[in-house]
């Protein structure tokens, strides 16, 4: 995935079954953000792989003052990339088991 300067990783081990999974997001490279970044730290949250939209979570982070509006897209894309990877890994595991 593209290096957005925002890291998103699993905050728990993926058992491959749960649809709601804990993720952790933090800014690794503030220079890649458009807005002036104030260090908010690592943000942990749960994400429903089937129902939720990464951009909507990013919007909520903006609304909560964790990011500026100008960085909503980059945060959303970072979450989207990680979610896609998690889904891809799950699909691969399922097809391997078959």
């Amino acid at each position: 995935a593209e290096d957005t300067g925002v890291r998103v990783e699993l905050a728990e081990e993926d058992d491959g079954k749960k649809t709601s999974i804990a993720l952790r997001l933090w800014v690794e490279d503030p220079k890649k953000l458009k807005g002036k970044y104030k260090d908010s730290g690592a943000i942990e949250f749960t994400f429903d792989l089937n129902k939720e939209v990464p951009e909507a979570v990013a919007q909520e982070m903006v609304d909560s003052g964790l990011f500026l509006d100008s960085d909503m897209k980059i945060v959303g894309r970072s979450i989207r990339d990680r979610v896609a990877l998690i889904k891809w890994r799950r699909e691969r595991t399922i097809s391997r088991d078959k």
Binding site: D39, G41, A42, I43, E44, V57, E60, D63, S64, L66
Partner: peptide, 27 residues
């Protein structure tokens, strides 16, 4: 604990805590 809980108007919970040193990219 240094973790702060942020609850959004949509009811989502964000748990914010300091990023460990080793996680940060060397500047």
């Amino acid at each position: 604990s240094t973790t702060t809980e942020v609850v959004t108007s949509a009811g989502r919970r964000f748990f914010v805590s300091p990023v460990p040193e080793f996680r940060l990219k060397e500047q």
